[in-house]
Design a protein around this nucleic acid. Structure first.
Lengths: 212, 212
DNA sequence: CGCGCACTTGAACCCCTTCAACGGGCGTGG
DNA sequence: CCACGCCCGTTGAAGGGGTTCAAGTGCGCG
């Protein structure tokens, strides 16, 4: 029995609903790199990411990946597929250790849209997806330098502990390109990198200018 | 007074609601090329496209446009901005003559999310946006040849009367590139083009193979 | 007839990827 | 403790897909 009541999302559910969900759900632990679901799979579960971070990306027929965004707990996963009865449109891969509630929504027989409060949550969730997709499209306009500048300005802490290879995936470019851009910024004194490869911003204005 | 009752979307509204919307709306006629709203504008109206087709695209700081999709009547326009109180994320431009209902949603004081049936419509609308955005992202994987092949296979009728310049915008490529690809397909006998520049498919299998 | 617009075609260019070679750090096993 | 392998980052060189620029060409229409 999982304490669903503690999750803000479920606060408005009455006990009967929570029981139904509880009795049709399993809590799973995932390791970094584990796949929650693959693009094209038929939806089986509605996932609720309770702890951790999951990367969501699309893969084309040639195996190339396009990173869309990182889903942070607590949030849904796979809700678009589930509610529209279509194959999962993307692949979801754990970036960290994750705790995920797998809701067998068919067994649970929940018609979420019957409940206004749930419908509202669904709207919120879809809205977040739209914003993420818009950002991907926005950044598809940008050159690699612009994307990196933007990333440094808004996600500098993400460089801690992460490899360039990981970051380059999030930025949809090759590690080589990321390396070249970063070293170019360093050479131009926009940023500095210490021994432990932590980045500090030296010339914020230049970076802002650069980021568009 | 506009016959809102006739529009399927409003069928479930009671008369009081319809009156409120009616008395806070104006019906506007647009010509091809007219802008319904610009990216970054503060939302003023919720638009309901009653007749015609509207192209929706993003523009970057260098003026380059990325076509996202074509909205066909009857559908909302601007609902993401309106419901989330953010600037319009895209630009909407009429492709044909259009009839659009401009709802002054603030004056009307409608809290759409209070009504379950409306909330459901909103979910549907957001869902459509997500699908369109996913398709844009999907096609960003493809080469120009793949995109053109796909377009010929699924939108061949759209070549009638349209210029290559228009089509190239929808496909997010330059007219030069479209011309080169089309003529390449013709040279290889995948398609044929008559005097009036109507396209017929000769080798459908090759096109399918080509489209990925 | 002449003008404008759309399409065509070639050539240069650009941005990024790909490929390849190399170096350095770190853990593991001998 | 050293040796080895591996992964990650770096750097250069080549290549590719598409855009841009520029110079035609052809057609419709006043």
């Amino acid at each position: 029995m999982i304490g669903l009541k503690k999750i803000s999302f479920f606060k408005k559910f009455d006990d009967a609903h929570i029981d139904i969900i509880n009795s049709n759900s399993t809590l799973a632990e995932y390791q970094p790199g584990d796949i929650v679901y693959y693009e094209q799979d038929e939806p089986k579960y509605l996932f609720l990411l309770l702890d951790g971070r999951v990367n969501v990306y699309k893969t084309n027929s040639k195996g190339k990946q396009l990173h869309i965004h990182a889903v942070e707990a607590v949030d849904f996963l796979g809700e678009v597929a589930v509610f529209y009865n279509m194959p999962y449109p993307i692949t979801a891969e754990c970036a960290t250790k994750c705790k995920i509630l797998k809701i067998d929504y068919k067994k649970a027989g929940i018609n979420f849209c019957k409940e206004l409060f749930f419908c509202k949550e669904l709207v919120n969730s879809l809205y977040k997806r739209i914003i993420a997709l818009m950002q991907v499209i926005d950044s598809s306009f940008l050159t690699t330098k612009e994307r990196v500048a933007r990333f440094i300005l808004s996600n500098i802490e993400d460089f801690n502990g992460a490899t360039y290879t990981d970051i380059s995936k999030r930025l949809n470019m090759t590690p080589e390109t990321l390396s070249r851009v970063i070293n170019d910024f360093k050479r131009k004194n926009y940023i500095d990198i210490d021994d432990r490869r932590n980045i500090t911003i030296i010339d914020k204005d230049k970076l802002i200018e650069m980021s568009e």
